Computed example of a mutant assay.
Amino acid sequence: MNGFEKRANRIKEKILHKTLEMMRTTDPKGIRIADISKAAEVSQVTIYNYFGSKEALLREVFVDYFDKAVRDFEDNMNEGHSLKEKVAHIIDLEKSAYRDFPPGLIKQMLAEDAELARYIEAMYRERTIPLTVRIIREGQASGVISEDVSIENVLAFIQIYMNQYEALLDMADKSADRDKFLEGMVQMFFYGLSGKR
């Protein structure tokens, strides 16, 4: 990569980073290219040259964020951690993701952007499900997950859980300690009411 490409990549990363910061506090519809331009200290023309439109920029922020999260998860999977350590890592990733992209925001973005919806579906099918299946198989091989529980059962349970995640976040916001509430829900999901680990 030559000097020009390195500089271009740094500028693009700065724009993505500043846009993500704005998405944490502002509805995407309220974000303007002028605001991003000011925060990233680049011209509006530069943003349009790199991304083409505000919608394409928001999509790339989302895609870049989740690509990095999946790569982080894949790296963690390959580092020889125990199932418990992998679950702890999943909890941390999940808390970060839902802080940055609450389910309501994700639903809104997917409803308004068919290309992003296709990306998420492909990511789920091609990368997330295989990683989940791998964790289940490793857990069964080590005796941590019962052999009586099928992969299909676990995947169905995950789907049910994720379909209710927005309601869980609402309950978490009303609790005394949001992070502790969410961690308890994820622990219960993985280890049941007995908390056996």
Rank of each mutant, 00 (worst) to 15 (best):
Gly80Asn: 03
Gly80Glu: 02
Gly80Cys: 03
His81Arg: 06
His81Leu: 09
Ser82Leu: 02
Leu83Asp: 03
Leu83Pro: 00
Leu83Met: 10
Leu83Trp: 02
Leu83Gln: 05
Lys84Val: 04
Lys84Asp: 08
Glu85His: 06
Glu85Ser: 07
Glu85Met: 04
Glu85Ala: 09
Lys86Phe: 03
Val87Ser: 00
Val87Gln: 01
Ala88Val: 11
Ala88Met: 13
Ala88Tyr: 09
Ala88Arg: 08
His89Gly: 09
His89Tyr: 14
Ile90Glu: 07
Ile90Leu: 15
Ile90Thr: 12
Ile91Leu: 10
Ile91Val: 15
Ile91His: 09
Asp92Leu: 13
Asp92Trp: 12
Asp92Tyr: 10
Asp92Asn: 14
Asp92Lys: 13
Leu93Cys: 12
Leu93Gln: 11
Glu94Pro: 04
Glu94Asn: 14
Glu94His: 14
Lys95Gly: 06
Lys95Phe: 09
Ser96Leu: 09
Ser96Ile: 08
Ala97Gly: 07
Ala97Val: 07
Arg99Trp: 07
Arg99Pro: 00
Asp100Thr: 03
Phe101Ala: 03
Pro102His: 01
Pro102Gly: 00
Pro103Gly: 01
Pro103Lys: 01
Pro103Gln: 01
Gly104Lys: 02
Gly104Arg: 04
Gly104Asp: 05
Leu105Glu: 01
Leu105Asn: 01
Leu105Gly: 01
Lys107Trp: 12
Gln108Cys: 10
Gln108Glu: 11
Met109Gly: 02
Met109Arg: 08
Met109Asn: 03
Met109Ala: 10
Met109Leu: 13
Met109Tyr: 06
Met109Pro: 02
Leu110Cys: 14
Leu110Trp: 11
Leu110Thr: 13
Ala111Gln: 14
Ala111Ile: 08
Ala111Trp: 08
Ala111Arg: 13
Glu112Ser: 08
Glu112Trp: 03
Glu112Gln: 11
Glu112Cys: 04
Asp113Ser: 07
Asp113Gln: 08
Asp113Gly: 05
Asp113Tyr: 06
Ala114Glu: 08
Glu115Lys: 04
Glu115Phe: 00
Glu115Val: 05
Glu115Gly: 01
Leu116Glu: 02
Leu116Arg: 02
Leu116His: 02
Leu116Pro: 00
Leu116Ser: 04
Ala117Val: 12
Ala117Tyr: 07
Ala117Lys: 14
Arg118Asp: 15
Arg118Pro: 01
Tyr119Asp: 07
Tyr119Gln: 06
Tyr119Gly: 04
Ile120Ala: 15
Ile120Glu: 15
Glu121Ile: 12
Glu121Phe: 09
Ala122Leu: 08
Ala122Arg: 11
Ala122Ile: 08
Met123Leu: 15
Met123Phe: 13
Met123Arg: 15
Met123Asp: 13
Tyr124Leu: 13
Tyr124Met: 11
Tyr124Cys: 10
Tyr124Glu: 11
Tyr124Ile: 10
Tyr124Ala: 10
Tyr124Asn: 13
Arg125Met: 11
Arg125Pro: 12
Glu126Gly: 09
Glu126Phe: 08
Arg127His: 05
Arg127Thr: 02
Arg127Glu: 01
Thr128Leu: 10
Ile129Cys: 03
Ile129Gln: 00
Ile129His: 03
Pro130Gly: 02
Pro130Met: 04
Pro130Tyr: 02
Leu131Trp: 02
Thr132Glu: 06
Thr132Asn: 07
Thr132Asp: 05
Thr132Pro: 01
Thr132Tyr: 05
Val133Leu: 10
Val133Ala: 12
Arg134Gly: 07
Arg134Glu: 11
Ile135Thr: 04
Ile135Asp: 00
Ile135Asn: 00
Ile136Glu: 06
Ile136Lys: 04
Ile136Tyr: 08
Arg137Ala: 09
Arg137Asp: 14
Arg137Gln: 14
Glu138Asp: 14
Gly139Arg: 03
Gly139Pro: 02
